[in-house]
Computed example of a mutant assay.
Amino acid sequence: MATPLAGQVTACLGSAPGPRRTVRSLATGRTRRPGWPALGAASIGCGIWTMRFIAMPGFQVSETDISHDGTLTFLSLLVATLVVGAGVFTVGCRGARPVPLLAAGLFTGLGVAGTHYLGTAAMRMNGP
């Protein structure tokens, strides 16, 4: 019970600065605009990824050890950051109008789902 709760707290703390940085990019001049969405994407992507890898040790299977494939684990972090980055940059550069928000949200949501599937595929354990 403690690790899923800790994972949720970590996700909230890690992701909270992301929207603020995106909003800041909308109010900043063109020359400094890309830095804020990049920081927002890193914050949100790492928050999502960290939540999963803090919460998953709470998942146990009787009589088998669970480990993670390093390459797939790193790939899941990369995907999380890149898809969130695409969404944040879309809103940060195109504005908070309905179409950019919908496109960014859809792409980011599907990417986050992909991140979680990659993280699950990275799990190694005995059994079928």
Score class of each variant (00 low, 15 high):
A2Q: 10
A2P: 09
A2C: 09
P4S: 08
L5C: 02
L5G: 05
L5F: 13
G7H: 01
T10H: 00
T10N: 04
C12F: 13
L13T: 08
S15H: 00
A16R: 07
A16E: 02
P17M: 06
G18M: 03
G18S: 11
G18D: 04
R20W: 12
R20F: 12
R20T: 13
T22M: 15
T22G: 09
T22D: 07
V23C: 15
V23D: 11
R24T: 12
R24A: 12
S25M: 09
L26S: 11
L26Q: 14
A27K: 12
T28V: 14
G29M: 06
R32Y: 00
P34N: 10
G35W: 01
G35A: 14
W36I: 02
W36H: 12
W36C: 07
P37H: 06
A38W: 10
S43R: 02
I44L: 08
I44P: 01
G45M: 05
G47I: 00
I48C: 00
T50A: 15
M51Y: 04
M51K: 03
R52W: 02
R52A: 04
I54T: 13
I54C: 03
A55E: 00
F59N: 12
F59P: 03
V61Y: 03
V61I: 13
E63P: 05
T64Y: 08
D65W: 13
D65R: 14
D65S: 14
S67D: 10
H68L: 10
H68E: 08
G70P: 05
G70A: 15
L72G: 07
L75P: 02
L77W: 03
L77R: 05
L77N: 01
L78K: 01
L78D: 00
A80T: 05
L82S: 09
V83F: 08
V84A: 01
A86K: 02
V88A: 12
V88P: 04
T90N: 10
T90M: 15
T90E: 13
C93G: 03
C93K: 11
G95Q: 12
G95L: 12
A96L: 12
A96C: 09
R97S: 11
R97M: 12
L101R: 15
A104Q: 10
G105T: 08
G105E: 10
L106F: 15
T108C: 11
L110H: 07
V112C: 02
V112H: 00
G114I: 06
G114D: 04
T115R: 06
Y117I: 13
Y117W: 09
L118V: 03
L118A: 05
G119L: 03
A121I: 08
A121Y: 02
M123T: 04
R124N: 12
M125F: 15
N126Q: 14
